[in-house]
Write a protein that binds this DNA or RNA. Structure first.
Lengths: 147, 147
DNA sequence: TGGCCAATCTTGACTCATTCAAGAAAAGGA
DNA sequence: TCCTTTTCTTGAATGAGTCAAGATTGGCCA
């Protein structure tokens, strides 16, 4: 049975963030890990495969708490509902397909925030550069070529 | 009275985009030009200073049409409602204040899309890099310092 | 181990930006 | 000027996300 990563890891993540270990939280962490860039509905559905009784509100609350404590990261490309991912703390970026909305990770070229210098900062103190690449995913390119 | 830029320019912009010239459209173009990065409500309020009878729906429709034809650009930083700006076609980016939501323009260092190379593109055909810098505006820095 | 208290969960209603729908009005070409 | 198509108005609907209040539960400490 190995090290039971499925069960123990989320628990430890919660504890190390000083959060209580509850069934909904563990289920949400597992769902986000196994469904990269999933929206809230997808997370909710995945969570209910484990425990059909968990409420929609609990999932929203848990996602908010996990986001605040940095255990998951919330991403919101325009024209999309909020999505969540488990890769945190490595300052990576995203590519979004204009056609189907698919999202993939892109490593940050420089490795650490803010990762880009602004050409003119208007007096702002800049902490982070968020980069979203827009384009067409492989699948949509092939669909387009076929027609 | 100069060249009456207030009135003629929007008209010509509309005509050159093959769009009909209507009072709401001219008013919305003027509002977006004079209120950089305004949200829909602000645009609506500005429009109603010119013509108090224009409906909220007309403004939404007009903004959508203008956006589609490239006369205005829609921006949507996360946790913010949609905002509009009149600077289009120059591939510039934005700085957003985490504290008060203020938005300012940042010129693109390279000048043309996609402006950044992705380190690994996952097979995506990349057309554009959208960059949002997150930080603290001058005013909020000073407020923070004062307390 | 038991009990307390704060944190968390459930249920259900609500908000608010944005969109939809159907009929009325107006722009622009013939 | 007339006709067709596009656009505008009015009013209702949608849907992601939030709020609120009471019930429940986890964790800490004796």
């Amino acid at each position: 049975m190995g090290h039971m990563h499925d069960v123990q890891e989320p628990e430890q993540m919660l504890r190390s963030a000083s959060l209580r270990v509850t069934k909904p939280r563990v289920a949400v962490i597992n769902a986000v890990h196994s469904h990269p860039h999933a929206d809230t509905d997808t997370v909710l559905a995945a969570v209910r495969e484990t425990d059909p009784e968990i409420s929609h509100q609990a999932v929203y609350d848990v996602l908010k708490v996990l986001t605040k404590s940095g255990l998951v990261r919330r991403i919101q490309p325009k024209d999309s509902v909020a999505r969540y991912e488990s890769r945190v703390g490595d300052n990576h970026h995203h590519v979004v397909c204009r056609s189907c909305g698919a999202i993939a990770d892109v490593d940050c070229a420089t490795g650490s925030a803010p990762c880009l210098e602004a050409s003119n900062d208007n007096g702002f103190q800049i902490e982070e550069a968020e980069v979203i690449y827009w384009g067409t995913c492989l699948e949509c390119q092939e669909t387009a070529k076929a027609s």
